[in-house]
Nucleic acid binder design. Sequence first.
DNA 1: ATGATCTTGACCAAGTTAGTCGTGAATTAG
DNA 2: CTAATTCACGACTAACTTGGTCAAGATCAT
Lengths: 147, 147
Amino acid sequence: MHIGTKGDYGVRALIDLAMYGGEGPVQRAEIARRQHIPESYLDHLLAQLRRDGFVRSTRGPGGGHQLTRPPEEICLLHVLESLEGSLAPMPCLEDDDSGEPHSVCAQQWVWREIYDDMRARLAAVSLADLAARERERLRSTVASYSI
Amino acid sequence: MHIGTKGDYGVRALIDLAMYGGEGPVQRAEIARRQHIPESYLDHLLAQLRRDGFVRSTRGPGGGHQLTRPPEEICLLHVLESLEGSLAPMPCLEDDDSGEPHSVCAQQWVWREIYDDMRARLAAVSLADLAARERERLRSTVASYSI
DNA sequence: ATGATCTTGACCAAGTTAGTCGTGAATTAG
DNA sequence: CTAATTCACGACTAACTTGGTCAAGATCAT
């Protein structure tokens, strides 16, 4: 359940696309510069996001990346699970298709509640929400510089 | 915020002390056997728990480990923070004594809420609660074997 | 003293994280 | 057609974390 640079950078990249991707593809280099992400690393994150259908890329001059769906329809939960893998705080909570019961650890029930609550909250946040917050943050930062 | 073997084993060791520690110290080897924990590893966990005042140890024959306080007064949150370090899901949420503002990441506010909720839930669970659950679990396991 | 028991620190293998780099493939401009 | 632009993908790496093991020593009851 730890969010590292993958989750942080990856989400920021998507927010960037939500904010600046209105008029066609946005280039990797541009995202990297704006979001202060090493470009060669961003590569991997975009590849993952493309594999999971969040972005579409086009090559060649004028190419770049864009969201496949409107930002209102992309939720933070799915993005983070794509980038970071399972967010389960302990192995015994990992989503398990095998049907076998995982070993029960003493604290499981508390963590189950925490995990469910967490996923619900993350599912309720869309890229559009995040982009709106980011716009607001940028506005107030610029304002404080100009005083 | 990931709970590894440290947190799992360590909590189980404390539950063991809560359950079997009524009549004097419990030995490392005994805990290790009952809870299926490598004894030499349990060592380190008990050392940490002693440093943070959860258990007291006595050496020599008849020695062992015991809780310093009644299990009702020990909460899961503090135990896990002792064993695993900060449970913050992202670095920017780490409790910060320096007063400097951490870099703001876009998702911070959601995670702040999740983190606070998590800590509240963990703080509401005592070792006594966990021990009660464990007793119940053992009872039902034995019952299912005897059928 | 002796043996039981905890204490401490050094050490280690395997896995994860956070990248870098190089080569190649697609697309477009000229 | 060719060159320039941009993404695609896999190999490689250094540093750190995890989950331990092990040996030497400190204490204490008897």
